[in-house]
Design a protein around this nucleic acid. Structure first.
Lengths: 216, 216
DNA sequence: GGATGTGAAGTATTTCACAGCC
DNA sequence: GGCTGTGAAATACTTCACATCC
């Protein structure tokens, strides 16, 4: 196919659902690598991930031919290729906005760093905690947002502020150049085309399970 | 090998993707009700949710005919019907397993109660904190799991234990009769048919966004 | 022999478009 | 006039099945 033309829409030919599965492949491959496994088949991967081997092969085929017929995939090579495709082969600096209880839990969660997401700045709306140190970071006021995001080359933000402030904070982040946002408040903030947003919403998750366990 | 496509129990004719959207409808309807709006069209709902009006009408049509032609939907009536369909018209008791930093944040998060999810018990694997009071709940040891889940009529659990303990904890919960699990560890625990599980995994969410903002 | 990569077939989901009703 | 409810059409996604290659 034609090489990436710089269309304003971007690279939309790979289905989003495929992209959303790649991080799971990465995670399993990481584990296989740690276990010293060097080669894996789509069959074996599928068992670990509870998806069909055909789906894995099809997903990978959007990006190239990474396997060896008759043998399978090199764990190391496939992992590196997927990390490159996803853009997680080099680290990302991340800002956290909102340093309440949830924000503090996020700042002290050890799971971001090993995967290359470095929490390098914390902000809060409430000036009474600005200046405090949390998780090794000094809490900054929103007036420093623009400067710090620019200086630290932050493209990703995690938002954990009360719901009524969320849209406004998201707007500020976008205005400062942030391009991807992970939002913990129970709304779906509106963002302009080109900005990515994901919501972490445990209540919605619970509510979509009760349907299945409700035996009235 | 292939996931069984045989006749699944009961109500599997409604696509899961439809069920997953209903809680969002509920949330918007709640807000409209608070704002005193009495009638809403699929067009208006669609704008707020960023989905097409046709999708909303189609989703609702799986369950009946709730609208009035020429007018729209009664906010109050549609809300009640959806809450009933989802099984969230009466409250659910929920157990939290794992009272580390994340578990504490969950226990003190005020967003579960208003939606009818009552956190009524907390457990931890680490006996050194068993007996402590967190968020108004006494932390219990795993030896009390079975008795308390039975006594408090708990069908839902939130699991926030270290990744290496997660599958084991999930197995214990299922053995005790829990039917839905919200898991915060970065794995996808295996559960038998009929048990519902959802994962909250911020790293996967981040990794599926970097693809789109990575302009190498 | 054994596993990939991929068109083609099969499903699932979304959107269209319009009859029917308020 | 306006909006729902819904078959039909369109699109998206998954699975099959097999030629191809190591």
């Amino acid at each position: 196919m034609a090489p990436n033309s710089e269309s304003r829409q971007g690279r939309s030919e790979v289905p989003e659902v495929v992209i959303s599965r790649l991080p799971q492949y990465v995670r399993i491959l990481n584990r296989l690598l740690e276990d010293g496994i060097q080669v894996v088949s789509s069959q074996q991967l599928g068992e670990k991930l509870q998806v069909t081997p055909a789906q894995i092969r099809k997903d990978l085929s959007y990006f190239g031919r990474f396997g060896k017929q008759g043998r399978g995939y090199s764990v190391h090579d496939l992992l590196e290729r997927l990390r490159q495709i996803l853009g997680i082969n080099s680290p990302w600096n991340v800002a956290v906005v909102g340093v309440g209880r949830l924000g503090r839990a996020i700042l002290s969660y050890p799971g971001f760093n090993p995967d290359g997401f470095h929490l390098v700045a914390a902000f809060d709306l409430n000036n009474s905690i600005v200046g405090d140190t949390v998780g090794g970071l000094v809490v900054r006021g929103m007036d420093e947002l623009d400067r710090v995001i620019d200086q630290e080359e932050i493209s990703i933000a995690i938002v954990a502020v009360p719901v009524d402030f969320t849209q406004n904070v998201v707007d500020q982040l976008v205005a400062c150049g942030v391009r991807a946002i992970l939002n913990y408040a129970p709304i779906t903030p509106q963002v302009r085309e080109g900005i990515r947003i994901r919501n972490i919403d445990p209540v919605l998750s619970l509510q979509s399970m009760t349907y299945y366990i409700n035996d009235d």
